[in-house]
Computed example of a mutant assay.
Amino acid sequence: MTDVDEKVERTDVGVSVEIEMKRGSGTRDQDKIKAKVKAETLGEAKADLDELKPYLREYADDLRAIQPTEDDD
């Protein structure tokens, strides 16, 4: 399961767009990544976010690859 929440807020210099991606539902089986971009216009903020998404996906894949060991319990 993957949840994605996007929040758009005004700033004094334009807009700020925040995205939160969460995978998993159990306390010990969750990955959560947040990113925020700021720009003068919503279109620029969306473009910046679109540019950022591939890096977030790669980061999420890296996080998923980390598995707890017996020493972590």
Rank of each mutant, 00 (worst) to 15 (best):
R10D: 13
K38L: 02
V17N: 00
I66L: 15
V17K: 01
K38D: 02
K36G: 00
D72Y: 00
L63N: 14
R28W: 11
L63H: 10
V17A: 01
V17L: 09
V15Q: 09
G26Q: 14
D12I: 06
T2E: 13
E58A: 11
E20A: 12
T69I: 06
Q67M: 15
D29K: 11
T27W: 06
D31Y: 11
K34F: 01
L52Q: 01
Y59E: 11
D31H: 14
E44M: 04
R57V: 13
I33F: 00
K53V: 13
D71F: 13
Q67A: 15
T2P: 05
E40L: 02
D72H: 08
E58I: 02
G26P: 01
V4D: 12
A47C: 02
E40A: 14
S16W: 04
A47E: 09
E51I: 01
T2G: 06
A35W: 03
T2D: 12
K22M: 12
V37R: 00
V15H: 06
V8S: 11
Y55T: 04
Q67G: 08
R23H: 14
S25N: 11
G43I: 03
A39L: 00
V17R: 03
D62E: 15
D71K: 10
V13T: 15
D31G: 10
A65D: 15
V17T: 00
E20R: 09
L49G: 00
E40Q: 09
T27I: 12
T41Q: 05
